[in-house]
């Protein structure tokens, strides 16, 4: 199995978007291009469904749809990271169609696709990805292996999430927001 798994704690994400801005700053992406984005499930706070925030970049899947679908082999894997090679990219955007997580981003200015490279250069220097080190609540982590202590407590999918057809390397934990749909929670009798 490849290295690197994102671990995302739904209970700890408060939607602050520090990760989004840290990613923007690290990669200095052009206007409108964000490799990492915040998604809010049920932002209307409809009371019979949970509301949670989830920050998603490339999940560096074990069986990546982008890589399989690319007609020019612009995607390759290196040390468990799905790397996009801009020199080979022809901007056809097939990868945008097949990725279930909207990870590849198309740059109109460059006429090419770009995406998260897991901050490979930072990893080589022994640093965490920019998004992980910017998270003020430790909602987002990157681990090199899924040991048993993690495996028992995580999910690969939650309702509303794509079927795991790509062997995604994102694991979710924290179910307090999902369990706590009681809205006015835990009323007490006197």
């Amino acid at each position: 199995m490849g290295k690197y798994y994102w671990i995302f704690n739904l209970d700890r994400c408060i939607g602050c978007e520090s990760c989004v801005l840290a990613c923007k700053q690290e990669h200095n992406t052009l206007p409108g291009i964000q490799y990492r984005r915040l998604h809010i499930v049920n932002p209307e706070l409809y009371p019979e469904f949970p509301t949670y925030r989830i920050s998603i970049a490339c999940n560096h899947c074990e069986d990546p749809a982008c890589l399989k679908g690319c007609p020019v082999n612009a995607y390759r894997k290196r040390n468990g990271i799905v790397i996009h090679h801009p020199n080979e990219c022809i901007g056809c955007r097939y990868c945008l169609w097949v990725c279930p997580y909207d990870a590849p981003q198309y740059s109109k200015q460059k006429r090419k696709v770009e995406k998260c490279d897991l901050c490979e250069e930072r990893l080589i220097r022994g640093l965490e990805p920019a998004c992980v080190s910017a998270c003020p609540t430790q909602a987002l982590e990157l681990v090199e292996h899924l040991d048993s202590s993690i495996q028992g407590n995580v999910l690969t999918s939650i309702s509303g999430f794509p079927e795991d057809e790509t062997q995604v390397k994102l694991r979710l934990k924290g179910t307090r927001r999902i369990d706590g749909v009681q809205g006015f929670s835990k009323r007490r009798e006197r």
Partner: peptide, 20 residues
Amino acid sequence: KIEGDPLQLTTRQPCLKGLS
């Protein structure tokens, strides 16, 4: 580049405004 200060435990990670 703007990063958090590991010495300041209370505010080790700046917000999106600080990062921008």
